[in-house]
Amino acid sequence: MGEIIQAPAATLSFCSFRIGDRLCGIDVLHVREISTQVQSTPVPQAPPMIRGLVNLRSRIHLVADLRPIFDLPSIECTPNSRLIIFKDRLAEGLGVLVDRVGDIVRASAEQIENTPAEADEPSPVADVVSNVCKLENELMLIIDPVKLIAFIEAAIRPSTLRTND
């Protein structure tokens, strides 16, 4: 007689932001904080996606710039630039520099899709993005911190030299 009420499908929340005009997101559970301190000290010899080092409350954080991944040139910081810092258990002192931060986007499991495996050619975007989220007007690329870290580490490791742990 009574109606069985379905529990709503699990919702995920994402911190949305823009790199250039690409809409991206990071699972809020992965985010420690968003900081306005975006001026960083560049690190010579580091690949272009490492923007530099920044001091946040006496801890030195690494700032990653995603623009090179999207094939965009790096630009000067603007008043809208922000730093999205990952939680410590994912990465020690790592943050991503973004052009502007958007709202928190809630999505249900149906809106999330795995990125298609049959890409024509390997692209750096696929190397850091694990899922896409379908929104009304756009597709939001979900950045996977684990893949991002692996990508940065691979870029920095010199291929000719062997490093011992």
Binding site: S40, T41, Q45, A46, I60, E92, I149, T163
Partner: peptide, 23 residues
Amino acid sequence: HAMLRPLSIFAGATILGDGKVSL
């Protein structure tokens, strides 16, 4: 920073008097 270890020309980092990071 752990990820920068392969860059052997740097021994560490520090924070200068103006709050900025210096290698």
